[in-house]
Write a protein that binds this DNA or RNA. Sequence first.
DNA 1: CACAGAATGGAATCACCACTCCAGAAAGGG
DNA 2: CCCTTTCTGGAGTGGTGATTCCATTCTGTG
Lengths: 226, 226
Amino acid sequence: MNARDDDSAALSRAPARLTRKGQATRARIVDAAARLMIETNVAGTRTDDVREAAGVSASQIYHYFEDKPALVRAVISHATDLVLEAQQPVLGQLDSMAALRAWRDHVVELQRSRQCAGGCPLGSLAGELAESGDSARGELAAGFARWETALREGLTTMHERGELRPDADPQELALALLAALQGGILLTQLRRDTAPMRAALDTTLDRIESLTTDPGPRTVEAAHKR
Amino acid sequence: MNARDDDSAALSRAPARLTRKGQATRARIVDAAARLMIETNVAGTRTDDVREAAGVSASQIYHYFEDKPALVRAVISHATDLVLEAQQPVLGQLDSMAALRAWRDHVVELQRSRQCAGGCPLGSLAGELAESGDSARGELAAGFARWETALREGLTTMHERGELRPDADPQELALALLAALQGGILLTQLRRDTAPMRAALDTTLDRIESLTTDPGPRTVEAAHKR
DNA sequence: CACAGAATGGAATCACCACTCCAGAAAGGG
DNA sequence: CCCTTTCTGGAGTGGTGATTCCATTCTGTG
């Protein structure tokens, strides 16, 4: 989704120019670090674990990154790419209730397939790093902003087409959807059960559907009032 | 809310009987540890920080707790008490839309008052410890279960009174509300702005209101269809 | 008030882990 | 194909932080 992968500057200590081989090594380090840090946690991941998983020597890591925090920043950015990619292609076309419901099914299935262990890659990094410095927090906020944008664009399209009532706010609904997903996954992770995330997403989607101008009798409200 | 504060057994290494003075010291340790671990994070909180903040000597901590994980478990339980207490008395009577909206205002104000820094005490512990062992995860799940119960009871009361439609599910709505709050706070923490948590909570509360049997023209739907 | 168990101080230990150093191999541009 | 720059291996090392030990002082009870 994002060829440059992460930083534009100042994240690496490495020389300005990276050899083809160097780029590959750097990518392997970020990839391995991301896997480990996301599966368990950042604090518990030692540089030596990364070293082994990436198949590099100790000095490599410090050849490409200033220090551990710099590596963590690269991991956050990479995690954002992973999360957004994992939701494609459906995330790019969230402009109908059917697409939104399909997206919901997709993310629920994603969690189910990993036995509800591990949270959202970006969300679990956020929980651990939110108060560990402004640079990490900014990186995380930027990641979520990209995600929110994807959600908002679909809702905005529906809004502009007149499929959502004029008084509906795509921005607010996108935020609510993202929050419902994050909170839902957290509870799902703790209970090892998808019920919380299903409840959270369905409730928010039902709300969105109730703001739909579509005359179809699909909402609970409509069914009730009929 | 909970006099015994946390464990019933096996959390302490301390002798079966605690002196009055011993109880006070133990409480001071848990209290200091909780403050530090919640404000920043668990991994970054050293036993020596706790020692200093609690005004005890190093051996005290190990007199009362097996090891750091055991202390962390006690902190989780204590954090649950703190969170639930901070929402009283409104949390105990969430049996009307007015009460729910008041609760929403209360938790938003709570975040605003701390400049949106730091997440939910229980939520941030959860994000950091969810994959750090089953005992911690169980303790966290238990904490959220207590919270969810409080929310569900209010909604169940409304349901039984007939203020919510028969097809509304208090259990599901309580879960959705808790998830919206957790996800909303996480995003709010990252952005240092209450907008995400307001969006998440309002959207979920609007959904609940739309499941209300109250004839009053208070919902957006009602206003629109009028 | 004696004494057994509990509480305390603080120095010492001990493992662990991020990070450094240096020497040598590969890359790639002119 | 030479020479500069980048890449790599791997053995340190310095600091940190969890945990222990033991001597000493309190507490509460019979």
